[in-house]
Design a protein around this nucleic acid. Structure first.
Ligand SMILES: Nc1ncnc2c1ncn2[C@@H]1O[C@H](COP(=O)(O)O)[C@@H](O)[C@H]1O
Ligand SMILES: [Zn+2]
Length: 199
DNA sequence: GTTCTAGAAC
DNA sequence: GTTCTAGAAC
């Protein structure tokens, strides 16, 4: 009789990367200081490449000012958010990106610390896009259009965010193609389907 | 946020 | 038996 195999939980890589900011939710703060991640910056904001891009092009624009999330945004930040929107437009109109369709917006409930604007190509074609939550975070009202956020901030002096319960529902919305009426059976089916829209 | 994997769904 | 997803991670 051979020895019994016992299942041992993967203890993770032995060689850990050098200690960064600590918790995973602070990762953007490190990325903003890492020249390998930074695409562009000016006095007030930094553009970084999303480390787990959910489309062929995916950038994050974050302020240097310590604003943890959209919840902390008020009318004093109008100029900043408009600047982020304008910079996003500059990026999507440059030679590298002008032939693709992009969306710019904020997740209603972000996981990562430091306010950040998603600038993402509309193909949604990426290996890092794996879950229903990923999909719905960019294709439902969980994704708050940047221009509309700016508009509301200007006109009403505040940004209305969906409740935690609403966010949960939005992220659990049944899968649907963002470009046609197709209802996929599951994520792998959806990922295969969206390839039919990629030129 | 991601990774990993147990157990559901097929 | 294989594919897929949901939830723990100290
Ligand atoms: N260390 C990191 N550097 C750059 N981007 C990251 C890092 N960790 C997570 N992300 C991305 O940051 C975004 C955070 O999503 P959210 O907080 O929901 O707006 C996601 O698109 C992640 O892929
Ligand atoms: Zn479609």
């Amino acid at each position: 009789m051979g020895p019994k195999r016992i299942l041992v939980k993967n203890q993770g890589n032995v060689a850990k990367k050098p200690k960064l900011s600590g918790h995973w939710s602070l990762g953007l703060l490190d990325a903003m200081k890492d020249p390998e991640c930074v695409v562009k910056e000016d006095d007030t904001v930094v553009v970084i490449k999303d480390k787990y891009p959910k489309a062929e092009f995916h950038y994050l624009i974050a302020p240097k000012e310590d604003i943890s999330s959209l919840k902390k945004v008020d009318k004093t930040h109008i100029d900043l958010l408009e600047h982020m929107q304008e910079l996003a437009e500059t990026i999507v109109n440059d030679n590298q990106h002008k032939d693709k369709s992009f969306r710019m917006g904020y997740h209603a409930e972000a996981s990562m610390v430091r306010l950040h604007l998603h600038v993402i190509s509309n193909d949604m074609n990426s290996n890092a896009l794996k879950t229903k939550k990923h999909w719905n975070s960019f294709t439902t009202d969980f994704f708050l259009d940047s221009k509309e956020v700016c508009k509301q901030l200007k006109e009403e002096g505040t940004v209305t965010l969906p409740s935690a319960e609403t966010c949960k529902k939005l992220l659990d919305t049944p899968l649907k193609c963002h470009k046609c009426e197709y209802i996929p059976k599951h994520m792998p089916d959806l990922k295969k389907h969206i390839m039919t829209h990629v030129q």
